[in-house]
Structure formats: structure tokens, C-alpha cells
Design a protein around this nucleic acid. Structure first.
Ligand SMILES: [Mn+2]
Ligand SMILES: [Mn+2]
Ligand SMILES: [Zn+2]
Ligand SMILES: [Zn+2]
Lengths: 141, 141
DNA sequence: GATAGAAATGAGAATCTTGATCATCTGAGC
DNA sequence: GCTCAGATGATCAAGATTCTCATTTCTATC
């Protein structure tokens, strides 16, 4: 039951929180904007306000249930904190997002931060390029 | 003369563009928000609108004269395109920014993108942590 | 140097995303 | 079921950036 995640996080189990968590768990797309979640809620007949979606997502982030990413444009996307940390590649043409994890990069980041006297806490890494997906409007030949 | 940069970029040489370029070249801080540039313009007696600052910076970016970064918060910072590419470390406590370049990371990024079938065009990498500067409000012991 | 046309600017409105306010509602414990 | 702290929804507000459009400024030409 997903409610356990909420309880563990010290969050009261409410209908909006459950529904939002459900959407994050079941959506095809792993990276969702607040608006996209809001629309899915409306589509499924839930009358939940956009402000609540933003509020809940921010709480989920603080609780470590989701992470907030800035991949493109000016809209943040949220994704469920599943396995472990990873970074992202975004297609400039079609917006497709792929995930990767590279221990070499992670290690170098730690070393670099240390050299500069920083106690590293986090990082944001996004690669941008053109994908070769058949659905991509600008598929390199 | 800095006007040559503008001409090379195919931009008409105007007073606002020259002044903004001057500020980017002479400022102590290498990373400036549009607002910070706007304030410097006001301080030096120039009556240039904030909209113009944003417009010109966007044009400079398109021309490759500056690059736009999202380091923290929701305000972009701009920096003059000097030597070559580099990435950034930001202190979570005091906001200090340091720059670095690591060929290992750059190479891995290219390899990863290739593995995923992406023709990599760009990337954004920012490390976040606590710095050890004596002026930093939260200096780790 | 004056002139004309294209391009750039400035002021303010507009937009977009996100957070704040506050009256009302709901869930967890008793 | 009752209570009340906490959550929600509607709306408003804020911050960053862009847009609109009348006015001004470059640049090229004479
Ligand atoms: Mn992801
Ligand atoms: Mn820099
Ligand atoms: Zn694509
Ligand atoms: Zn610091």
C-alpha cells in the first residue's frame, strides 16, 4: 500500500496526496510537470487544485519521495524517487528524456568538489542533443 | 574596441549593447543576473530599460558572446564567453561560485550520449555544496 | 552633414510558473 | 461521533521574462 510511504514521510494520508502519488507511480512518463499531474487528476475526475499539486510535490520533495528536475524550458518536472540517483539526456528536437548513471562522472565530481574545498551535497547534470528516435522530428540521417 | 565583437556578431552597434558589453567585461563578478546588469546601468547613469537588458542578453547568447546559466533559484545568470567551456560549483550557504573544467567528465558525457544514440550539443553541470570560505556563514568545522 | 528606412529601444502590459493567504474542510485519535 | 491540527481550494500575489507598440537611433545613401 502506498499510504505507508506517506506515513513514513510524516505526512498525513489525504486523498490529494494519495492520488498524486498514484499518478507518479503509474504514469507512462517518468518525468511530469505539476501541470501534467494536475491535468491527469482532472481527467480522472478528481477536483484537486493546482496549488495543492505544487504544495504536495514540494512536500514530497522535502520528504525524499520525489525529486525535482529542471530539464528544459522553465517548468520543473518531478519524478518518483525509485532506485537510485541518475542523470538525464534530453533531445533538443523532440524532448525525449533518457536516464543514465556513470560512476566515473560521479567520482570526478566528488574529487573536484574536494579540490575546491567544497563539501558536495548535490549536483545537476543534463546532456542536451539530438536523439535518433524514429518519432523525432529532426532525426539525424 | 569592443564594438568589433558586436559587428562580428551581426548586431548593430548601439549604446545599450555597448554599455551592457562593458559591464560584462569589467564587472568583478563573472556571473551576473539581468537585474544586476540593469542596476549597474542605472548606477552609471544610463537610462536603459530592463526589457532591453533581457533582449540584448538573449541576442548576445544567440551570437555566442555570452552564455546563460541557471545556477540557483529561478534567476538566470549571464557570463561573457571568454576562454573556453567550463562548469560550476555553487555554495549552498553563501552562493559563491567557482569554475572548473574536467576533461574526464567531458569525455564520459560524449561517450554516454553516443551510447544512447544522441548527437550531444550541450550540457549543464552544476555541483552544489558547502564551501570553506572564511566569509561563508556556514563554514564546515 | 542632412535624410530615410530599418532596426532597436523604453515603458508598461502581459504571461508563465510558482508560492502565499485565508476561510473551509478532513483525517486521526479519542 | 467529536475535536482540532493540519490540509485543501479559490484566489490573489510575486518574481522573472517576454511582448507590444509608439518613439528613437543607427547606418547607409545622397
Ligand atoms: Mn529521471
Ligand atoms: Mn562561469
Ligand atoms: Zn528526439
Ligand atoms: Zn559558502
Amino acid at each position: 500500500m502506498e499510504t505507508s510511504n506517506l506515513k513514513k514521510a510524516g505526512l498525513k494520508v489525504t486523498l490529494p496526496r494519495m492520488k498524486i502519488l498514484e499518478i507518479l507511480e503509474s504514469s507512462e512518463t517518468r518525468h511530469l510537470t505539476a501541470e501534467a499531474i494536475y491535468r491527469e487528476l482532472l481527467d480522472s475526475g478528481e477536483e484537486i487544485g493546482l496549488a495543492t499539486v505544487y504544495r504536495v510535490l514540494t512536500q514530497f520533495e522535502a520528504a525524499g519521495l520525489v525529486c525535482r528536475l529542471h530539464l528544459e524550458g522553465n517548468q520543473a518536472v518531478f519524478e518518483l524517487e525509485r532506485g537510485g540517483h541518475h542523470d538525464h539526456i534530453v533531445c533538443n528536437q523532440c524532448g525525449r528524456v533518457e536516464e543514465f548513471f556513470d560512476e566515473t562522472i560521479e567520482r570526478r565530481q566528488r574529487e573536484i568538489a574536494q579540490h575546491h574545498g567544497f563539501a558536495i551535497k548535490d549536483h545537476a547534470l543534463v546532456l542536451y542533443g539530438d536523439c535518433n528516435d524514429s518519432a523525432c522530428p529532426h532525426r539525424p540521417a
